[in-house]
C-alpha cells in the first residue's frame, strides 16, 4: 500500500465530507433541524449542474454558481414550507417532513433527469498534479481549498458579524430573540438557504469524482450524519476536524480491509464513539465554536 497516496486521498475525501456537511451543521446548530432530505439536495445540486452543462452547453465554471443558486432556492422553499413547524419547534414532525421533502426531490429528479447514471465532468478533473508517489487532480485541490475557504468564512460570519450574532441568538432561544426585536423568520430563511447553497456547492465540487444517480441521496446522507455527530452537534470547527478524520479513516479502511464495507465500519466507529462519549449526542453547548 502506498501510505502517502492513501493519506492524500483521505485528506481529499475528508474535505469532501466536511464540505457536504457544513450546511447541515449550521442547520442543526441554529434551527435544531435534522434534514433527512440533505442527501437528495446533494443529488439535486449535482444533477442541476450536469443538466445545465449537457442541455445548454454552459461551461463547468458557469454551471457551479447556477446550481448553487438553485440549491439556495430549494433551501428557501423548504423553509417556507416548514416555517410553522420550525417556529413551534415541532421536531418530530419536522424530521418526517424533511424525509418527505427528500422523497419529492428524488421523484422530481427521476422524472426530470431519468434513471441512467450520468457524469458531471469538470475540466479540472483531467489535470493531474504531483509526482510518481503522490498525485491528485486539480479538482481535488480546488475541493480542499474551497472547503477551507467556506469553513473560515462561516466561522468569521458567525463569530464576528452582526448577522452571525443574530444567528447565534436564534439558536440559543428563538422566542427571546423575537422579544428582543429580532425578526426571526429572515434568519431562518438565511440558514435554510445557506444549507441548500452549501450542499449544492459541495455536490458540484465532489460529484465529478464519481458517476451520479438520482438515487444516491439515501446513502450520501449517512457520512454527513456521522461527521455532524462526531464533530459535536452543531459545532462548525468540530465538523471540519471530524470530516478530515473520517476521510482518513475511510481511505485507510478501504485500502486495508474492504471498500464495500466502508459505510458499515463507519457506523461501527460511530457506535463506539456513542458508547464511549454518550454526551456527544446531546444537542447543546457546542454551537458555532
Amino acid at each position: 500500500m502506498n501510505v502517502a497516496q492513501q493519506f492524500a486521498n483521505g485528506i481529499i475525501i475528508g474535505h469532501a465530507y466536511a464540505l457536504v456537511a457544513v450546511g447541515w451543521t449550521l442547520l442543526l446548530g441554529a434551527a435544531r433541524l435534522v434534514n433527512f432530505g440533505h442527501g437528495q439536495m446533494y443529488m439535486m445540486g449535482a444533477f442541476v449542474a450536469w443538466w445545465l452543462m449537457s442541455a445548454t452547453g454552459l461551461p463547468y465554471a458557469a454551471a457551479v454558481p447556477l446550481a448553487v443558486l438553485v440549491g439556495a432556492l430549494l433551501g428557501a422553499l423548504m423553509q417556507r414550507l416548514f416555517l410553522r413547524l420550525t417556529l413551534s419547534q415541532d421536531l418530530v414532525n419536522l424530521m418526517i417532513a424533511t424525509l418527505g421533502f427528500g422523497q419529492i426531490l428524488q421523484g422530481a429528479a427521476g422524472l426530470a433527469f431519468g434513471a441512467k447514471p450520468e457524469r458531471l465532468t469538470s475540466p479540472l478533473q483531467a489535470i493531474t498534479l504531483g509526482g510518481a508517489r503522490v498525485s491528485c487532480s486539480a479538482q481535488d485541490v480546488l475541493l480542499v481549498g474551497a472547503t477551507i475557504v467556506v469553513f473560515l468564512g462561516l466561522h468569521w460570519v458567525l463569530r464576528r458579524s452582526r448577522f452571525g450574532a443574530a444567528v447565534r441568538m436564534v439558536a440559543e432561544d428563538p422566542p427571546l430573540a423575537a422579544l428582543y426585536g429580532l425578526r426571526v423568520a429572515p434568519v431562518y430563511l438565511a440558514i435554510f438557504a445557506f444549507e441548500g447553497a452549501a450542499v449544492a456547492f459541495a455536490a458540484t465540487l465532489v460529484a465529478p469524482r464519481t458517476p451520479i444517480l438520482t438515487s444516491i441521496g439515501f446513502e450520501q446522507v449517512v457520512m454527513t450524519f456521522v461527521v455532524v455527530v462526531l464533530g459535536g452537534i452543531g459545532s462548525v470547527g468540530g465538523s471540519y476536524v471530524a470530516g478530515l478524520l473520517l476521510g482518513l479513516y475511510t481511505a485507510f479502511f478501504s485500502a486495508l480491509v474492504s471498500p464495500a464495507y466502508t459505510t458499515a465500519s463507519v457506523f461501527a466507529l460511530l457506535i463506539v464513539v456513542m458508547v464511549v462519549r454518550p454526551g456527544k449526542l446531546a444537542a447543546s453547548g457546542g454551537f458555532a465554536r
Binding site: L81, F82, R84, L85, D90, N93, I96, A97, L99, G100, F101, G102, Q103, I104, L105, Q106, G107, A108, A109, G110, L111
Partner: peptide, 22 residues
C-alpha cells in the same frame, strides 16, 4: 404515475399533511 411520479406524490402527501394538519 410511474415509479418517480408515485414517489413525488408520496412525498407531497407526507409534506402536505405535516404542514397543513400535522
Amino acid at each position: 404515475l410511474g415509479a418517480y411520479g408515485d414517489a413525488l406524490v408520496l412525498g407531497t402527501v407526507l409534506v402536505g399533511v405535516l404542514c397543513l394538519c400535522p
